[in-house]
């Protein structure tokens, strides 16, 4: 009897192994393990066995049943896996096809530059001050030590609306307004960005509308050497740690002494190239110690308080930084231009 069982087992296992689909396996399961299957048949004849033999054969029969069941299961899972794999193979895609575009705009390069400068000074304890773009002659000129008839007014031919109201030619009126609000008490520590307007014909290097960002610090004992410190920090953070700065005496009506700041050329490192016109230096901003007249007009005691101011042009900085050759690009807003400043 055991031999018969052994033979059945071998026969079943062989069939399982040769089966090629799930249907066949189901048939095998029914034919070998079903109620009318050969194993059941064999077991039905157990009654003829001796009581000693019965448990041995019974156990053997169960063992064979388990072996066939387990073989069936493993073959089924093997076949199922093959089906899944076949299906997945059919689902495969070309991963090199382009992805779904995500719409993402970006800031205008001038905004990017202004925000970068603002952030730099915010970390140094400055606040951002803003003011009107249409100004009075007083704040735009007179409060900044540019009385009517002053030759320096020529430097900035202005868009007047009435005799006394004009489009501001600089962001400096914000300085005058801010100082006035402090009622003669320091410290004042601001940067003021914004649009300004001058009667220039638009060309590659001139624009009748452009941006400025200025800074102002007024307190007791503010020194030119402090201005140097602030500007050096700014230059290094904005243009790289290895930048050197140079102050040259200059002239602005609202500062005395006045300086212009050059940085060592970030393109050639100071050796001389086309960017720095072979001088090794690039002019970046104008600055100086606030003129006593400006302090006094804004209500500060110029014996007690001193201060410094600086101003620069975001267009110039953006043009230098990104190598832009025509200032008009900033205001034409060609999408091919705007898109280039995603990581700015």
């Amino acid at each position: 009897m055991q031999d018969r069982l052994q033979a059945l087992k071998e026969e079943a296992l062989l069939k399982i192994q040769q089966a090629s689909d799930l249907k066949e396996l189901q048939d095998i399961k029914v034919s070998y393990l079903g109620k009318r299957g050969p194993i059941t048949e064999v077991l039905k004849g157990m009654g003829k066995l001796s009581p000693e033999e019965r448990p041995v054969v019974g156990a053997y029969a169960n063992e064979i049943r388990d072996a066939i069941t387990s073989a069936l299961e493993s073959k089924i899972s093997e076949l199922e896996q093959a089906v899944i794999e076949e299906k997945l193979k059919k689902e495969s895609i070309d991963v090199t096809l382009p992805g779904r575009p995500v719409r993402k705009g970006n800031a205008h390069p001038l905004t990017a530059v202004i925000e970068e400068i603002e952030d730099l000074f915010l970390t140094m304890g400055f606040t951002v001050a803003e003011g009107p773009e249409v100004e009075t002659d007083y704040y735009n000129f007179e409060a900044l030590n540019l009385p009517k008839g002053h030759p320096a007014r020529d430097m900035q031919d202005s868009f007047f609306i009435t005799e006394d109201i004009l489009l501001r030619t600089q962001t400096s009126p914000v300085q005058a307004r801010t100082m006035e609000k402090h009622h003669g008490r320091g410290p004042v520590k601001i940067v003021s960005p914004g649009k300004v307007y001058r009667r220039d014909d638009d060309d590659a290097t001139h624009s009748h509308q452009f941006m400025q960002i200025e800074g102002l610090v007024v307190d007791e004992n503010v020194r030119l050497s402090d201005l140097k410190g602030v500007l050096e920090t700014f230059a290094k953070k904005m243009f790289g740690e290895e930048r050197k700065i140079r102050l040259r005496p200059s002239f602005f009506p609202f500062t005395e002494p006045s300086v212009e700041m050059d940085i060592s050329c970030f393109k050639c490192g100071g050796k001389g190239c086309s960017i720095c016109k072979h001088t090794g230096w690039i002019e970046i901003l104008g600055a100086g110690m606030v003129h006593p007249n400006v302090l006094e007009m804004a209500g500060f005691d110029s014996k007690k308080y001193t201060g410094f101011a600086f101003g620069m042009g975001p267009e110039r900085i953006a043009m230098l930084k990104y190598g832009i050759d025509d200032i008009r690009h900033f205001y034409t807003n060609d999408l091919r231009f705007l898109k280039q400043f995603k990581k700015a």
Partner: peptide, 12 residues
Amino acid sequence: GTGLYQAVTYAL
């Protein structure tokens, strides 16, 4: 973030 680009144009 919505996909618009910032423009700066002339006030006059």
